[in-house]
Simulated scan of single mutants.
Amino acid sequence: MPFSFLKRNRTSQASTRFPPFAVDMHAHILPLLDNGPQSLEESVALIQEMASQGLRKIIATPHIMGEFYENSIENIRNSRNRLRSELIRKCISVEIDMAAEYYLDVSLVHMLEQGQPLLAIQDTYLLLETSIVGRPSFLYEAIELIQKRNLVPVLAHPERYHYLQQNFDLVIDLHRRGVLFQLNLNSWQSNHLATRQLAERLTTEGLVSFVGSNTHNQREWSHIKDSIHSTVFARLVEKGLLNSHLL
């Protein structure tokens, strides 16, 4: 049975003057910060490809992950500003904003408890990822801490997490607690059956608030971009996404 009572009234992007995928709110486009582009030139080439598909704004979300990706607001801002300058120099018209994709571990919980500054999308949405396999023991604690900061937790690519693939009741519980879900753009074409199935169910139930490419390079983007023109993406747009509200 569809959980229609959980669906929010959202303005469909189909009725706006923007392209269906005008804002990518989850992309690894900043050079030399994580597993994204390894040079400024690679970043520019990737963004040129993305802009050619109608993207008007890309929100860079480099990983912040304990001791593995020790990015800071300062080095993310510096990288973003350098990239912006290069895009202006090359007359590439696409807006580059910045946030981060936070890995939910004890270091993030500590940052939340200590009230440390965080890079949220438009100072509102905090993008999170977790372990693929197991649910973090402090998942609910982290959600409450985020909300106490007047931020909205957004779970990146929930369709990939084994613990959600095996327990849709937990998906519903997280949604009821105010967690929004960001689906990866080509997840419904994944080679992994459980990922495809959960992506389809999230779409059917109207539980997807954002779609992001989660792209890291041109090769990935070449496999992702055709999803913009798929029937599944059209259904997501029809049900209502929040991406265009980030323009």
Rank of each mutant, 00 (worst) to 15 (best):
R56D: 11
N191G: 11
D123W: 02
G66E: 11
R8G: 04
T215C: 15
F5I: 04
Y163K: 07
E74W: 03
Q165H: 09
L46R: 09
Y161I: 13
A60S: 13
R196T: 03
Q13G: 14
E70A: 13
S222Y: 03
E86N: 14
N75Q: 08
L33H: 07
E42Y: 09
L183Q: 09
A22H: 04
N243L: 10
S222W: 03
I132C: 00
I146Y: 02
D123C: 02
L145A: 05
A156S: 14
H245R: 04
V237P: 03
V171A: 11
P117W: 02
E95K: 08
L108M: 06
S12G: 13
P136F: 05
H229Y: 14
V211F: 08
V237G: 05
E220M: 07
S137G: 04
V44Y: 04
P20L: 10
S39F: 08
G240N: 05
F233R: 06
D34H: 03
R149A: 09
D105P: 06
H229K: 13
P62K: 06
H26V: 07
A99R: 02
E67V: 13
E129V: 07
A14G: 04
L83C: 01
E86T: 13
S137I: 13
H28N: 10
S209R: 00
A234S: 15
K148Q: 14
L33E: 08
A100I: 06
I76L: 12
A14T: 03
E205I: 14
S93Q: 13
R80Q: 15
I29N: 09
R8I: 10
I76V: 13
T16Y: 08
E95R: 07
R80G: 02
R84P: 00
A99S: 14
H110C: 05
G178D: 10
